[in-house]
Design a protein around this nucleic acid. Sequence first.
DNA 1: TATACTTTCGTGTGCGCACACGATCATTAT
DNA 2: ATAATGATCGTGTGCGCACACGAAAGTATA
Lengths: 358, 358
Amino acid sequence: MSRIRIKDIAQLANVSAGTVDRVIHGRSGVSDATRKRIENILEEYDYQPDILAGTLASGKSYRMLVCMPEVVYAHEFWKFPEEGVRRALDEIAHFDVSVEYLRFDQHNKRDFCHKTDGLQIGDYDGVLFAPVFRDESVKFIARCHTVGVPCILFNSRVEGVEFDGFIGQDAWQSAYLGGKLMDYGLSAGRDLLILNLSLRTDNYQHITKREHGFRAYFEEHSDRVDHLVSLNLSGGDYAVIADALDRKMGELNVAGIFVTNSRVHLAARYLAEHGTMNIRLIGYDLMKESIGYLRREYIDFLISQSPEEQAYLGLRHLFTGVVLKKEYPHEVLMPIDILTKENIDHYLNFNHPNEQPE
Amino acid sequence: MSRIRIKDIAQLANVSAGTVDRVIHGRSGVSDATRKRIENILEEYDYQPDILAGTLASGKSYRMLVCMPEVVYAHEFWKFPEEGVRRALDEIAHFDVSVEYLRFDQHNKRDFCHKTDGLQIGDYDGVLFAPVFRDESVKFIARCHTVGVPCILFNSRVEGVEFDGFIGQDAWQSAYLGGKLMDYGLSAGRDLLILNLSLRTDNYQHITKREHGFRAYFEEHSDRVDHLVSLNLSGGDYAVIADALDRKMGELNVAGIFVTNSRVHLAARYLAEHGTMNIRLIGYDLMKESIGYLRREYIDFLISQSPEEQAYLGLRHLFTGVVLKKEYPHEVLMPIDILTKENIDHYLNFNHPNEQPE
DNA sequence: TATACTTTCGTGTGCGCACACGATCATTAT
DNA sequence: ATAATGATCGTGTGCGCACACGAAAGTATA
């Protein structure tokens, strides 16, 4: 009563196993008549190949490429996906799957081009890609397509080109939630600050969508706030940010600050240095510095997009498609995780069990 | 440069593959001298068996038992773990792993005893168990132990007996977080209600820990609240609950209600029927009714313990231990998920992609 | 010494599949 | 007519391992 094998199919069709094998793999050398007959039987008995025996016999090995920004101190963020890749690899390593990284400087277009231009994409069986530069990413994804290598995107999407899968977060909705958390329990009629602290215009779409989402909340609850002011500071320097904040805090009656990316810890530092705990602060991601301020309640909420989980899923999807040759979801939107002082530890323990809390 | 095989080890040790095989499996029939020699070589070359070839050759199949309360309308909660089991099974089915369910009436001790007493636990290779009745569960777990079948618990823990793994949530901390969410932005000096709506004393420990956690928050922030009143209602009837609430609402100046389990939708119904939206309501789990009230903002926050993910991990851990014969974490505490009207949809989509939102 | 028994080990087979090779037969060219 | 060609299909081998069987050598018993 076990699963049906190639041998069984062959017997049912009065042919040899080799012929069935040819049909299954779409190889030539089978007459149309027998091919149809075998296909029908395969269908009828719902033949499912034994993947274990298959990979064992084929001896094939799979190389996946993970292409994403390099981990540098200022962008610790990119160490998280590695954890997810590691976890996925742990689960699928039996199938002779290996991963190679291609890391690029996310502030240097030319670095990305230089590193990808010479790349033999055809050497790989799948690509997991975190796009940063719009046009260059489009070109890269198109190149994957021409050589027939599936390319799954994570973290951010790229418009204008077909991709084989996407795993990310609904940026607009995450910030709309940020609006709710900012508003929750706040007395009406005060001012809020939206702080865009991009180092460059990378992930620009993300940032914009977040600002829109946050504003959308307060457009739907227009009575809740007097002024909703954006402050865009593209420089990285804390002093600049502090200066700008000084000025705004003087002009407005600020009740809360929403930082549209992971650099929320800079705003937290400002609040900490000025000893102001009664200004709400909400931002993104689990930078080490941010976690410290969250624990000391200078940051009220951090919104996480689970970068580990994104990369984990990305690699799993590649595996599903390439090795198992099965369908996988074309688009996955991650849950929008809300983190506070009270649940951050369990979150970190769960997602990074190997790291020691400080 | 491929991985080292049994054959290679055999050659290195000047023995046949059969002998190496005996050493690896700890079978008898090898002299102490050669055994030592082979063990050293295995160690030195860090031999890792090819699981695929192993399971293919052994032809073994694995039967897992999932023992948990049956899904009835009033406890829709228990349909979630099934989703996680299904997902895990999808991933490991290649290894000839199958799952059987043993579902019991969680309000009927005798039903549990009756169904487990005749059970041949030895027929299974692993057990995933959601304990409800304390003493009976201890007995059941002990029985697994005597026949050498690993037993992993999820959802709630059982004291007084050794188990092979646990996956659950920190009940105390989840309610401490509930306290924070209740308190957040609330003006000081009002009253809060803790509502225990257990149908029975099942999961009693859970409930108690949650009450303690919630109270602990306000003991640490004692200036934030005047009265913190518990209301225990073990009956299931809405009318009874409404009556009791009517009385309490008269006595106190209630600003918020914390329901210690999934029956928070009953309190939400009360608020909805009385048209009171300015009372905060926080509870647990993703009952369909509760989600409706969350969407209409009668419930402010739901705390989720990811029952799917718990069961998913449980089965994966069993697989890791039984099939891969590797270590797995003895205890996993789930992240404490915060759900609001604004992020519930993405959460549901991610965890239950097959269900249609209403 | 001959026999029975035990310890120690090598050999062989098969798991289900992928793939190379060769066999068979009909068809076409010479 | 034979030879050559191509289409169609069967057979065999091996992937790395688990496990049964039996061989060889040593040990005990009569």
